[in-house]
Design a protein around this nucleic acid. Structure first.
Lengths: 193, 193
DNA sequence: AATAACCGTTGATAAATATCAACGGTTTCC
DNA sequence: GGAAACCGTTGATATTTATCAACGGTTATT
């Protein structure tokens, strides 16, 4: 179970992971299994935990006044599911995170995470790289959202994240892109010819 | 000149800043003055530098096929102007960064930044906090962009960032929000009653 | 002091996208 | 094995937002 995480760290760090490090990681990260639709975090709660996805798929979304869900993030294997805002600021989360498929996670609290980052240099490296990438990805997504019409946003997304297209139904992709499922359906129809 | 940066670090770190640390920071951060409209980074270049804004205002934007500018970020005093993507990945930048007002900066390269983060614990803390906040802010902005219509986006922005409303002209705010200046003008007119 | 650039506004119109309603094909669940 | 939930699609229509053009006031430039 923890092997996936070790591999992930190796891929993102240059520093080595000793046997003691691995033992510490195994002792800290708790395996957790979520059934499809099960919440990992619910709006209003404080999201102290972060989860590394070993297998499965999850989504993070807000719900507006009208009860419409807006997908903020989609996660699959080797991604981290968490609400950084809530975890860092200790404020009630404005988002829900739940399992879209049955999902196996490795869970840590924010505090444990910080501790591991200090004690295990390779882990510190890994989280830094991950943060960096997340930030870059969200800047790109923002740029695409303010610069492009729906059609181009979809094209860029499909090109950059084919895994998500295969994995999640169209109406979630639409919501992620900030458009309705009907509009996405029409865009795809256009694109076919 | 470097005082503003020391103050900034004090505000974001719990660890102390020794005299040697300060000396190292002064030796590393180069003061730079930009005239209004002067580029700090130009599309296609590799943005190795980051600038801490001591005084002034800047903007980061992309230019689309039609030559229209899309504001990705606005910066004022105590913000960092840089293209993280280009600096981290060593790829040509897709953005321009220029001075909106005459601006005083303290400039470092990415490499120097990493070095300082290692040598000065308080500085490492500060950059971590800054990264965290940036990430949270961009998540919020994304959520607002995909969830809300133009009017509500503007309201939220005006509430959360009054400094920007005062500081930048309306057409830049509009672009930042992903709408045209005409639409923003009409939204504001509505809101008045 | 004159001229040009910049900025916000308004009106008329076009284009993009949302909304509402309905349908048929899956898949899921008891 | 049948009912219910889920999913994508399509059509008709409404709403939002962009585009284009023009104007007057302000600010910057020379």
């Amino acid at each position: 179970m923890h092997e996936a995480l070790f591999t992930y760290i190796h891929q993102h760090a240059t520093l080595p992971l000793t046997a003691e490090h691995k033992a510490l990681i195994e002792a800290t990260f708790q395996p957790k299994r979520l059934r499809k639709k099960q919440y990992f975090l619910q709006e209003g709660d404080i999201g102290k935990q972060a989860g590394f996805i070993v297998k499965g798929a999850m989504r993070q979304y807000s719900v507006d006044d009208k009860g419409v869900e807006h997908i903020v993030n989609l996660f699959i294997e080797n991604w981290w599911a968490s609400d950084r805002e809530s975890a860092t600021m200790h404020t009630p989360s404005r988002y829900n995170i739940d399992a879209w498929e049955d999902t196996d996670l490795l869970v840590v609290t924010r505090a444990e995470m910080l501790e591991l980052m200090e004690k295990i240099p390779a882990f510190g490296q890994t989280t830094r790289v991950m943060d960096e990438r997340n930030f870059i990805a969200s800047q790109r997504r923002l740029n695409s959202t303010i610069s492009n019409a729906a059609e181009k946003r979809y094209e860029e997304f499909a090109e950059n994240h084919p895994q998500f297209i295969e994995r999640f139904p169209q109406h979630l992709i639409a919501s992620f892109l900030g458009i309705t499922k009907e509009t996405l359906s029409r865009i795809r129809k256009q694109a076919m010819r």
